[in-house]
Design a protein around this nucleic acid. Sequence first.
RNA 1: GGCGGCGUACCCAAGCGGCAAGGGGGAGGUCUGCAAAACCUUUAUGCGCCGGUUCAAAUCCGGCCGCCGCCUCCA
Length: 485
Amino acid sequence: MGLKIYNTMSGKKEAFVPIEDNRVGMYVCGVTVYDLCHVGHARSAVVFDTISRYLRFRNYDVKFVKNFTDIDDKIINRANEEGKTWDEIAETYTKEYYEDMTKLGVAAPDVEPKATGHIAGMIDMIGKLIDKGYAYQTDDGIYYEVGKFVGYGMLSKRDISSMEAGARVEIDPKKRNHFDFALWKSSKEGEPAWESPWGRGRPGWHIECSVMSLAHLGETFDIHGGGADLIFPHHENEIAQSCAATGKPFAKYWIHNGFITIDKEKMSKSLGNFFTIRDILKEFDPEVLRVFLLSTHYGSPIEFSRESLRQTEPSLDRVYSTVLRVDDFLRLFKEKTQPSKDDADFGIIAGSFKDKFVEAMNDDFNTAAAVATIFDIVREINRYLDKKPSSPETKRLIEKAAADIKECAAVLNIITKTPQEWYQALLLSHKADITESEIEKLIIKRRQARENKEWKLADEIRGTLDSKGIILEDKEGGTIWKVRV
RNA sequence: GGCGGCGUACCCAAGCGGCAAGGGGGAGGUCUGCAAAACCUUUAUGCGCCGGUUCAAAUCCGGCCGCCGCCUCCA
């Protein structure tokens, strides 16, 4: 069974068939760079990063385009507030964005166009829309006339004639229809402006995505994504612009991620109920946030809380714990027995792991189910190793299982650290009041005590470490430390 | 008001007509000098409520209750 994707346009899960062979063109609406990103932005970024990774894992030749909106009212306002220029603001927050994304393991898309880099293309498209009768001029600029586009509302399933104009926004009498939107805004004195046939001005928001997707992916492409809040009006407007300008279909599959909520309400700047990525990563490892975000289907809302992240931490820790166990096992492995039924049983289970992972991901990128398959195989590995297997088959099976986990985890871009790096990172994010070398010293001291069977002293040392959140494990190869999660 | 979505155990969560995945937490056990980790057993005869369709419903249909989103900028 192949990949199925829930298409917002049809409201159904559809078999994914790229327009051209195995090539996939994918456009995702990026951020407006006027402030630090919050966890909601993180979700969108992680979701589409994972989707692109999965498509590549399935051997699609992916071209992933994600834009930066680097000119917009919010940027201008911010610049005025801070006494900086609009491009300084855009540059600053683009840099901050990359810092967050790097930590979250979000790979840079193949092309990251900026709105201001495509002004010429916008002027060209706006000209076409005017020529074809889809746009008109007012003294504020150029507007798109939604009434002229037959399919307007097809994505968001709205009928503009029955929508209550001015329900939440004042009606602009210069516009022919309340839902007409700006393609080009005339600039006032002192505002950033570009020359155009319609005077100096700047682009409206929606036109950039139509123009940049056209420039980098062509008139018709496979996947268009973004947050669910972009369905109306942003994506609706993109469709209106692009289809009217090119006369061709626009995106084939529309994918929208659900929101992050706080106390059931959408996390947003305007409500002020947001956590920046920056702040959360002071307390949690980025992989914890990533696993947390991927533990729910991308389309569903996620209620965000530190408590939930704290629940995620031990589950990831368990995987790392098993990775460490496997590493040790292979390092100390000695062949002793002939292949047994245990080997055979494990072989069958481990052999189906990848198929199960793929099956989960094929079902509309069900990362929650996919993560569960990793927990399943982890349990099976532990169960198998508990039997102390030692046949020639054992080594091969464990190596294969470890490699499969690594390969699938790479699609989700989790379990990217070594166990040592994981525990060191936890030491920092938990703000443990002890350093690694102090821990090592106490472990040595305790080892001597144990060799002398001074159990009381040994237990005292362990108690000291425990009070600082450090757990010891006495194993075959020696004592190791972990951070209690 | 229009349109869309959600409600699964103590918490998170998958599930899209055929015995209710997975994770966290709790309880009991195996192992261990004692622990920890791991594993085993256990924790929803039940999926907001009420009806209906079906041999079969968490899944489909209708009604009700509760919550949320979009209709302004928003990931």
